[in-house]
């Protein structure tokens, strides 16, 4: 039966008092958490890249490009010619289907803010991940010791 591991509040558990199966379970759980962190880090990185490239795109939208012709993608493989009518504003997706019109400066700030936010989250995860992997290493160590003790006995 998949019991929920014994650690919610009890931070201080002497690992040496746990049995081998308990340790294995604990290690498995830690491994799972660690891979979850890895995944989260990766998707955060992806988001960060997207914001970054959107921010870089804004550098190209200058008053000089007003009225210049562009090709607007209708689908991935079909374009129609168009002209840049407004180079002062862009519309940004701010989440849950809402789009807001922003001037270029505001949009740049928006992306800067987003990148800072995502970076902050990544740093947080990295710190927690580091701690978790330390715990995991200790658990592995104790397991090793226990196994050695067992083989010595038999």
């Amino acid at each position: 039966m998949s019991q929920i591991p014994l650690e919610p509040n009890a931070q201080q558990i002497d690992l040496t008092t746990l049995s081998l199966p308990q340790l294995t379970q604990l290690k498995q759980q830690l491994d799972q958490e660690l891979s979850l962190f890895q995944e989260s880090l990766q998707s955060l990185k992806l988001a960060q890249n997207k914001f970054q490239s959107s921010g870089e795109c804004l550098e190209k939208v200058t008053p000089e490009s007003q009225g210049k012709s562009i090709l607007v993608p209708l689908t991935g493989s079909m374009y129609v010619p168009g002209q840049l009518a407004d180079t002062k504003h862009v519309i940004i997706d701010i989440g849950t289907g809402y789009y807001a019109e922003q001037d270029i400066e505001g949009a740049k700030n928006y992306f800067k803010r987003k990148i800072a936010f995502v970076t902050e989250q990544m740093e947080k995860i990295q710190v927690i991940g580091l701690e978790k992997s330390k715990v995991r290493d200790t658990v592995a160590e104790v397991m090793e010791l226990k196994m050695q003790a067992q083989t010595a006995q038999s």
Partner: peptide, 27 residues
Amino acid sequence: NENQVVKDELNLLSEDRKIYKAIGPAL
């Protein structure tokens, strides 16, 4: 979380800003 982010974002905008809501593919 996502809605909270949108709320914060909307609060940062001035009242005269144009807002669009995506309904299907249309804004």
